[in-house]
């Protein structure tokens, strides 16, 4: 019960932070999307179908606020699907039983790798979709690199702030 409440709270908090502050950041090539921390922080034991549904709902909510119907949804469902494989790939068996992915439960390096892989996957898909009709691929690439770097930095930094 506590875990469900905690995740719903995290969902609401991240949506508010994302749509009211981060989406309005006025740097030309940089919009960090840290709301994916919700998907990254779902319990390891969370059933995979619930991962997917949670990703879908999160994506749709962000889409509603930013008028990008479907794009965030697509990227979110993708990383919700990849999450299971990423955990399997980077995190040793005995660490997988713990509840919530973090420095503490995964170890610093595995967690960093986990965050980097999923964030880059999400940003690449999202910004490529957004740019679908555009010829200017260099700018899209620049956006992906800068936005991913900033998102990863923020997500990792949040780990230092939190107590557990």
């Amino acid at each position: 019960m506590r875990i469900i409440a905690e995740n719903i709270f995290r969902f609401l908090l991240l949506v508010i932070v994302q749509v009211l502050f981060l989406n309005n950041l006025q740097f030309t090539y940089c919009t960090p999307y840290i709301y994916i921390l919700f998907i990254l922080s779902l319990p390891v034991a969370c059933p995979r179908w619930l991962d997917l549904i949670a990703g879908f709902v999160m994506g749709l909510t962000i889409d509603m606020f930013s008028n990008t119907l479907g794009m965030h949804t697509f990227a979110c469902v993708l990383i919700a699907y990849l999450r299971y494989f990423t955990i399997k790939l980077f995190i040793s068996e005995e660490n997988r039983i713990t509840n919530k992915p973090s420095f503490h439960s995964f170890g610093v390096m595995p967690y960093v790798k986990y965050v980097i892989l999923l964030t880059v996957a999400h940003h690449t898909v999202l910004l490529a979709l957004e740019a679908m009709t555009f010829v200017n691929w260099w700018i899209t690439l620049l956006r992906i690199i800068i936005s991913s770097a900033v998102s990863i930095a923020i997500i990792i930094a949040l780990q230092f702030v939190k107590r557990n």
Partner: peptide, 12 residues
């Protein structure tokens, strides 16, 4: 996964 991605794609 495929179902949800298809939905998202149709929305786009």
């Amino acid at each position: 996964f495929l179902l949800l991605e298809t939905t998202a794609f149709l929305l786009i």
